[in-house]
Design a protein around this nucleic acid. Structure first.
Lengths: 238, 238
DNA sequence: ACACCGTACCTGTATAGACAAGTCACTTTC
DNA sequence: GAAAGTGACTTGTCTATACAGGTACGGTGT
């Protein structure tokens, strides 16, 4: 279960703690080793232990209280109004037939750009899928997704005719936090061809990063034809 | 303009850099002082300068390249899709100059489509405004807005060089609820011209309806150039 | 023209040592 | 018993120093 040791010592310390959180040895609300504990246990300087815990706190994995200690943060699975819902459910809810086509499903090495989005080293193996989701025969979403197999293993063996990537990930890697970015773009031809949309049609791109156990579980670019897809939100202030 | 000095020295360093980014002294892509420059200029240790720059990089304000230097990140404007925020505040928060141009401001009768969105009878008088919001000289948003004068009276007498429509509405008609719809579109020539964007550029359209006292107070179509505007959301449990 | 190398500068990481401030439990004092 | 003090432990910050590794640039030799 334990991962190959990263070179940087503060990363080793992060993993030391993270592994125990992931394994359940340390549960939500429990106290994690203090900086000085880590100094003694892992033979690092306090500054290094401090950096590891500080970054884990910034990631939302830990909570630190000056004078008291460091604790595992409470993790809850979320439900959010702007969540990109399961595309299959969305389509079926509108009374249309849902179909998916798997264009690609393989393991690929991380490019530098991908490595950055994942916060991993370039060349790390990532599971890659390229799917087209159809609504009643028309493409509604092209989903280009990369999954970190160390966080969510078994992605390549998933049968996407029965399970969407989203469903799989929720089951395998409990969602801690997600980032969405929404843009209007003119996608490259490769995507445009799959979406079967004209060269003059704008597309809605949702870039999504999901986090689990303090690490990036998955990075997805979701392309939608601008003429057939929109995001809607109801906002209640306060 | 400058804020009271924070006590922690690394925060002082962060503000030193941030102020220059906000003031425009340092523009996107430009090089920021190196760690050693900051050591000499602000009389701090390199570890402290390092922490400041590292955190600003983590915040997305700067980009660091080992062996090369630290640079101001290219910043797309971020907006939180779930908040009803003020475009002027957003721009100023990014440290850029905000300016607005009033293209039209008049009373118009509701067309059938507008009447539907307002849930009113066609022909009802509506206050209409067409504004272009500029960020540092570049159009960032074209705001086409209709206001129901029975819910929010006095809209046409508002001075938009000092108050944004958003601010006015909040004051006159307390916001009860809002609806957002986000689309990617290729807008008509009229809008494209105001946005000064090319004919091949996709635009992000936010259609917003705000409700006050149970009625539709305002309907707005907000157009943004796809290359310079995006919506971002961090979705956290709880 | 081109490959190679040295140098200067940059960020990234790591350490030991130091002081401050917050929290808690225990003890002393009134 | 209540208030005040004390000490141990925690995180937060800061410094001086060090080495590694990346990058750019200019010079040198072929």
């Amino acid at each position: 279960m334990s991962l190959p040791q990263p070179s940087a010592r503060y990363l080793q310390v992060k993993h030391f703690v993270l592994d125990q959180v992931a394994a359940g040895t340390l549960r939500a609300g429990e106290r994690v080793p203090s900086e000085n504990d880590l100094v003694r246990a892992l033979r690092v300087s306090r500054m290094t232990a401090n950096r590891a815990l500080k970054e884990l706190a910034a990631d939302g994995v830990l909570v630190r209280v000056a004078g008291v200690g460091t604790f595992v943060a409470e993790q809850r699975v979320h439900a959010h109004p702007l969540e990109v819902r399961n595309i299959a459910d969305e389509i079926r809810a509108r009374g249309h037939e849902y179909r998916v086509r798997v264009v690609a499903l393989e393991s690929v090495p991380a490019t530098r750009e991908l490595a950055e989005r994942f916060d991993l080293k370039p060349g790390t193996a990532l599971d890659y899928s390229l799917l087209t989701h159809y609504e009643g025969g028309l493409p509604l979403q092209v989903e280009e997704r990369y999954v970190n197999p160390q966080v969510a293993p078994g992605y390549l063996r998933c049968d996407f005719s029965h399970t969407t990537p989203h469903e799989f990930l929720i089951k395998v890697a409990p969602l801690q936090r997600a980032e969405h970015t929404v843009r209007a773009v003119m996608p490259e031809w490769r995507i445009r061809r799959l979406l079967k949309c004209e060269s003059s049609e704008a597309c809605l791109l949702i870039m999504r990063r999901t986090f689990s156990k303090g690490r990036v579980a998955s990075v997805a670019d979701l392309y939608h034809p601008g003429s057939r897809y929109e995001l809607a939100a109801n906002i209640q202030p306060r």
